[in-house]
Amino acid sequence: MPLSSTLPAEADIRTALAGVNDPEIRKPITDLGMVESVAVHPDGVVEVAVLLTVAGCPMRDTLTNDVTAAVAKLAGVTGVRVNFGVMSDAQRKNLQTTLRGGQTAEPVIPFAQPGSLTRVYAVASGKGGVGKSSVTVNLAAALAARGLSVGVLDADIYGFSIPRMLGVEGRPTQVEQMIMPPQSHGVKVISIGMFTPGNTAVVWRGPMLHRALQQFLADVFWGDLDVLLMDLPPGTGDIAISVAQLVPGAEILVVTTPQQAAAEVAERAGSIALQTHQRLVGVVENMSWLELPNGERMDVFGSGGGEAVSAALSRTLGAQVPLLGQIPLDPRVREGGDSGIPLVLSDPDAAAAKALSGVADKLAVRQRGLAGMSLGLTPAARR
């Protein structure tokens, strides 16, 4: 039994707990009001009462391990007991207000605000089957691996596939009217597939699609994202129009294959920027070629589609729309989508992974700007 003089002070314990982040919100549990009480017993056992946002929180074990590890490092601690309670309605409302920066009004779309620093890329295609979702998840994983804070919004309500392709198994946690998105490979993810039982089809008309997209943008607690990737459904329908209305600053990234027929459709998808006044960040040509064992390239889907789309959109918009990359055809991209581990993570040296990482590099170097950032300057006093 340690002497009383060697027992840790409550202030030291709370300082240690400040280094423990909530697994879903990614903020210190002390800042979120989750630490209800701390007790130090004469035998050196520290008892910490933690308030969960909801009963049956799936991250209970993670919190137990993290709190125990943080407190056990302090001198004089012989053991740690973590007890859990659940926040009251009032406490959850306070938490919601805290996460929204003190605002109690109706939620707004943070990415549509003038001071937003998040780069939003709407990944579009003219038709399905060009690998748009595969490109999206690999770009997200590659950007997150560079240390950026990344989110993916699966805006393909009818054909959602992002949760499987990123290996997301958990479901969102709701705190009052705020939704905490699950994370995988360092990427925050939200999809209608997380709210439907089994493999149930979504049968909605346009207004419901718009409302779902609005909720995903406003009600989900994304935190301070560097990049938000939105995986759009093929074509220029309701969702593409809603994105332009809800997040007018979103930039369009067009995905096509080398096939001329696909390129023509992709060109139409990109030209929507003329009507919505959005910026086209560039074109990605997927499934560009298949590299044979002898080193030769087989143009399975033809060639030149990406360059054709880039040139046509540049002429149409009167501004350069670059071809950001050509992604070789690789069965491992499909395998990664089925297993939930993107190719850029499972085999970063593969030719397709390097090409995808090259596109991510071009997107990552674009600066967030200085709007809203603290420059650490102190005004000089007048003399």
Score class of each variant (00 low, 15 high):
233 P>W: 12
223 G>L: 02
206 G>V: 04
263 A>C: 04
240 A>S: 14
239 I>C: 08
184 S>L: 07
232 L>C: 15
194 M>H: 15
218 A>H: 00
230 M>Q: 07
202 V>M: 15
250 A>P: 03
243 V>L: 14
238 D>Q: 13
225 L>R: 01
248 P>N: 10
229 L>M: 14
217 L>S: 00
205 R>L: 10
234 P>D: 11
217 L>E: 00
183 Q>H: 07
236 T>N: 13
189 V>F: 06
195 F>S: 05
207 P>H: 06
260 Q>H: 15
188 K>V: 01
210 H>D: 09
246 L>E: 04
239 I>Y: 02
204 W>Y: 07
228 L>N: 06
238 D>V: 13
207 P>G: 05
210 H>N: 14
234 P>Y: 12
260 Q>I: 10
183 Q>N: 02
185 H>A: 09
240 A>V: 13
256 T>Y: 15
242 S>M: 03
182 P>F: 09
192 I>Y: 03
192 I>D: 07
259 Q>C: 14
228 L>G: 02
237 G>I: 15
246 L>K: 09
245 Q>S: 02
235 G>V: 13
211 R>F: 02
195 F>C: 03
210 H>V: 13
216 F>Y: 06
211 R>H: 12
258 P>L: 14
260 Q>V: 14
263 A>N: 08
187 V>G: 02
259 Q>L: 06
227 V>A: 03
227 V>D: 04
241 I>T: 12
209 L>C: 13
194 M>E: 08
189 V>R: 04
240 A>Y: 14
253 L>S: 09
212 A>N: 07
210 H>C: 01
243 V>Y: 10
190 I>G: 01
188 K>S: 12
183 Q>V: 04
226 D>Q: 00
199 N>G: 10
226 D>Y: 02
233 P>M: 09
245 Q>R: 07
240 A>D: 13
186 G>A: 03
200 T>I: 08
194 M>S: 07
211 R>A: 08
258 P>N: 14
211 R>S: 14
220 V>R: 01
248 P>M: 08
251 E>M: 13
216 F>C: 02
249 G>Y: 03
252 I>R: 10
246 L>S: 06
256 T>M: 15
239 I>R: 04
184 S>H: 04
253 L>W: 05
212 A>Q: 09
239 I>H: 02
255 V>K: 15
230 M>W: 09
220 V>C: 02
196 T>K: 07
183 Q>T: 13
218 A>Y: 00
243 V>R: 10
213 L>G: 06
204 W>G: 06
190 I>D: 02
254 V>R: 11
238 D>Y: 12
234 P>R: 10
253 L>E: 12
250 A>C: 11
241 I>E: 04
187 V>K: 03
237 G>S: 12
195 F>I: 07
206 G>L: 09
186 G>Y: 02
224 D>F: 05
208 M>E: 12
209 L>G: 14
231 D>P: 06
206 G>S: 11
199 N>I: 15
251 E>N: 07
